[in-house]
């Protein structure tokens, strides 16, 4: 349970916020209300963020990561949703309903996507500020991959210090490249394996150990 929470804390946090917002806005029971989406941008925004979060949790959406891909996904879903609302006559928001189909829907969807991405970016910024200074280097790869890269870079940093880090990174670039492409989660076994591989690498590079 704790492992699940640790792994998906961001999703859970967003889901909680989205649910709370939805609950507050609905002021009643949760309902599937596309008419409401076409009428009230706040409801549509909640639905859009929820849809993107859900898609990213599926096996097809798990590779969608980083600010550009997520923004594109959000825009596509927003536009499709907006066009669908207008096609089925449910887009009644006065600002966009006057435009001919499908332009009103596209505009509505794009506007929602822009608002959603801005909101999520602000939210992420705030979340980072609240995470007690444990944020590490973010290369915008998958979360697991980024964690492994962080780990390798942390090993180098601890071993050689800032002055020699550039050379050390060059030396282990093949290992970084290998793990950058993997979808592996940093399990205990993988962590132990990485520790051992880097110890071997630094001994081979001439680092003298200590006699015990």
């Amino acid at each position: 349970m704790m492992q699940f929470v640790r792994k998906h804390w961001r999703f859970l946090l967003i889901a909680t916020v989205v649910l709370a917002m939805g609950r507050a806005m609905a002021q009643d029971e949760f309902v599937f209300d596309p008419v409401g989406w076409g009428e009230n941008p706040a409801l549509a925004l909640t639905a859009l963020i929820g849809a993107v979060a859900m898609i990213r949790q599926t096996k097809w959406g798990s590779s969608i990561d980083g600010p550009v891909r997520v923004a594109i996904l959000t825009a596509v879903i927003g536009m499709l949703g907006g066009v669908a609302l207008q096609m089925f006559g449910m887009l009644t928001h006065p600002t966009v309903a006057a435009y001919p189909s499908p332009w009103g829907g596209l505009l509505y969807g794009l506007g929602l996507a822009f608002t959603a991405m801005t909101g999520v970016a602000v939210f992420n910024y705030g979340a980072k500020k609240l995470s007690s200074g444990e944020q590490t280097l973010d290369i915008h790869t998958g979360q697991a991959t980024s964690q492994i890269l962080d780990f390798i870079l942390a090993q180098l940093r601890a071993l050689v210090g800032p002055a020699k880090l550039p050379a050390a990174i060059t030396a282990v670039a093949p290992i970084i490249a290998e793990f950058a492409q993997s979808k592996a989660v940093l399990t205990d076994d993988l962590r132990a394996n990485l520790q051992a591989r880097l110890l071997s690498a630094v001994r081979a590079a001439g680092l003298m150990g200590q006699d015990l």
């Binding site: 792994k7 007690s132 444990e134 940093l186 001994r203 150990g209 200590q210 006699d211 015990l212």
Partner: peptide, 24 residues
């Protein structure tokens, strides 16, 4: 432990976060 030319490292997490820490 005994041995010659030993190099070692340790890694761990904290209960308060998911970051992995490392020292040589």
């Amino acid at each position: 432990l005994t041995g010659k030319g030993v190099v070692a490292n340790a890694s761990w997490r904290r209960s308060t976060g998911s970051s992995v820490y490392l020292v040589f």
